[in-house]
Nucleic acid binder design. Structure first.
Length: 587
RNA sequence: GCGCCUGUAGCUCAGUUGGAUAGAGCAACGGAUUUCUAAUCCGUAGGUCGCAGGUUCGAGUCCUGCCAGGCGUACCA
């Protein structure tokens, strides 16, 4: 099924064109601000009238006269300066709900007709250290973007641009060899605490000039391709992966080692990129470094701002790596679009990167480039979240604490459940709460991290959503206990009967799911999804409070069971499939 | 200095190419439980959308100026 907004948009736009003879007539259909105006409103007549300098109300009248929406709506109203108000007809609503029910996988939502290859660059931890709270947002927002795009039908290529190369590896290699003199024998090493390992190496580097020199030589030999150095480097990277892969798994983030294209991957491609940009005349030496000067960027003095691609000592920078990665993605991965999910502080870098790669013309076709930014996770004091001693908080510790806290709540609310089930609920609720809290904020703003708030049962939180889901599911269990044949009821349903306002309200919200996903995808805003899901859970709770399901009259019960079924499917799809947050059957 | 982001209820935040009387949650106050999970629901109260101009039928949204905070701005990522 095409979404309701798409159908209305297309029909009304066509009518607007027919009336005015204009080609481009956006109908601007959206849910109404207030239910008294109906279910959807089209605002396009006013803008069009303004463009043509004619009476907007008149345009709306002519458009409505031309429209035939009998299959979908009651007859449209015109209000105010030229709003077209639309109310879904009961028959249409009924059909939509039944069709949604008939497609349990996609909930009746069509995939795009022309799938694209979309590369999403996200997470990108520095492998020499444990993942910390600073990696949370890129990791989960990126994961959600991938899930939404895949659901839309696109071919998504995840790229985890891990920091697995660079000067710090000399230090780490030297330190590891010092700690494990027998390492040359290709034995397995275990780094119990990555953070401690990194710190110790750094301390040795800072305090011991001899060690520092060894470390510098290790960098040179590593970058020169020395096989022993490479072997040790690989051990460190493998060890690091052992630390961060479980975090991805705990977060239900769909990243695997196969998605890794770390900085090291591009090592051989850096020099050719610089040579190519020099050849094309896009880059030139400046103060000993090689720079591109993209148009329109100036520094403090008002001089052209350099995008430095090679240092005066010959070394490459992250600009170089990102250029090489961009080239690889367009030339080799054949990307139609590339999405970068990094914090907002890198905006300038990506603007310059995008200018440079567009000028470089490495591929004939246009590649759509997007930098999806996000704000900072703050502590209660309004500054970036840190431990009391000022260190960054390890993601593992943060998630562990969330699960422990969720476990305390479960224990308080439901002490009699089996221990294993309580633990599973605690994991789903704890991890879900952290993720949901992040998603429910506009990604562009900073937010204050607050366990109590995100784990609260009331409000726009994961527990509230999960509870709503568990309540729907309990109806199914209860039905089974009472010998009510839910599937039989639903199978016999040919017309959904919606009498109570709570039923109608819930039903009308259910049929908006596809449009919500589309809106969330426009600029990659997961909070559109959480807002929708929260409203859905609220509407369900109202329905639940005022409309008995199992005890309903036999002519009402199937329709109510259908509403329950679709609510559960939609919540589960949104939470689990698109946001990667687990639901639980009981809590 | 310049650029980017942010500024909306006591608090945390939404607000979808400019649309109707600016919404939600928390906190506060008042109510609802013989009924499918009360981890719920219903109601009340709470606003100069940072400030000042402008554009127009209409501005939280667009433009200009200003104020406050954050971030960035040549060889870290």
């Amino acid at each position: 099924m095409r979404t309701i907004v798409e159908i209305l948009e297309q029909q009304i736009a066509a009518a607007m064109s027919a009336v005015t003879g204009e080609e481009h007539c956006p109908a601007i259909v959206k849910p109404t601000a207030d239910p008294k105006f109906g279910d959807y409103q089209a605002n396009g007549a006013m803008g069009l009238a303004k463009r043509l300098k004619i009476n907007p109300r008149r345009v709306a009248e002519q458009v409505v006269a031309k429209l035939d929406l009998r299959d979908i709506c009651e007859s449209p109203d015109i209000a105010g300066p030229g709003f077209i108000n639309l109310r879904l007809s009961p028959g249409f609503l009924s059909d939509r709900l039944l069709e949604t029910r008939a497609d349990p996988i996609r909930l009746g939502i069509e995939a795009v007709s022309t799938p694209q290859t979309i590369v999403v660059d996200f997470s990108s931890p520095n492998v020499a250290k444990q993942m910390h709270v600073g990696h949370l947002r890129s990791t989960i927002i990126g994961d959600c973007i991938c899930r939404m795009l895949e659901f839309e039908g696109h071919r998504v290529i995840r790229q985890n641009h891990i920091g697995d190369w660079g000067t710090q590896f000399g230090m780490l290699i030297a330190y590891l060899r010092e700690e494990n003199p027998g390492l040359d024998e290709a034995g397995r090493v275990e780094i119990q605490d990555l953070e401690q390992f990194y710190r110790s190496a750094k301390t040795r580097f800072d305090e011991d000039p001899t060690f520092a020199e060894t470390a510098r030589q290790a960098v040179v030999s590593l970058q020169g391709g020395d096989s022993l150095s490479l072997a040790i480097w690989k051990k460190i990277v493998d060890e690091s992966r052992r630390h961060y892969q479980p975090i991805y798994d705990a977060l239900s983030v769909q990243l695997t080692p196969a998605d890794e294209r770390g900085e090291s991957f591009y090592n051989e491609l850096l020099a050719p990129v610089v040579a190519d940009l020099l050849d094309q005349g896009l880059a030139r030496p400046s103060d000993g470094a090689i720079c591109v000067f993209p148009e329109g960027f100036v520094n403090k003095e008002g001089d052209p701002l350099p995008f430095i691609i090679q240092k005066s000592d010959g070394g490459f920078l992250y600009a170089t790596t990102d250029l090489a990665a961009n080239r690889y993605r367009r030339e080799t991965l054949r990307a139609d679009a590339i999405v970068y999910v990094t914090d907002a502080r890198q905006k300038l870098h990506f603007e310059m990167l995008f200018h440079t790669v567009r000028a470089a013309r490495w591929t004939d076709r246009e590649v759509d480039l997007a930098h999806v930014t996000f704000g900072t996770v703050l502590g209660a004091d309004g500054t970036p979240l840190k431990t009391r001693s000022g260190d960054s908080i390890k993601l593992k510790d943060l998630l562990d604490e969330a699960v422990v806290r969720a476990g305390e709540v479960v224990e308080r609310k439901n002490p009699d459940l089996p221990a294993e089930q309580k633990a599973a609920i605690a994991r789903a609720v704890g991890i879900g709460a952290v993720k949901y809290a992040d998603y429910s904020n506009n990604r562009t703003s900073d937010y204050v991290f607050d366990f109590d708030k995100m784990l609260a049962m009331e409000g726009n939180t994961a527990p509230y959503m999960q509870y709503a889901y568990a309540r729907v599911q309990s109806i199914g269990r209860k039905a089974a206990d009472e010998g009510i044949d839910v599937d039989g009821d639903l199978a016999g349903l040919s017309r959904v009967h919606l009498a109570e306002p709570e039923e109608l309200d819930l039903a009308k919200h259910l049929v908006r799911y596809g449009d919500t996903i589309k809106a969330a995808l426009v600029d990659y805003h997961p909070n559109y999804l959480t807002t929708y899901l929260h409203e859905l859970a609220q509407k369900f709770s109202r329905f639940y409070a005022s409309c008995p399901v199992l005890a309903a009259d036999i002519d009402q019960r199937p329709s109510r069971l259908l509403l329950c079924d679709l609510t559960a499917r939609t919540i589960k799809h949104g939470l689990t499939h698109l946001l990667g947050i687990e639901v639980v059957e009981q809590m």
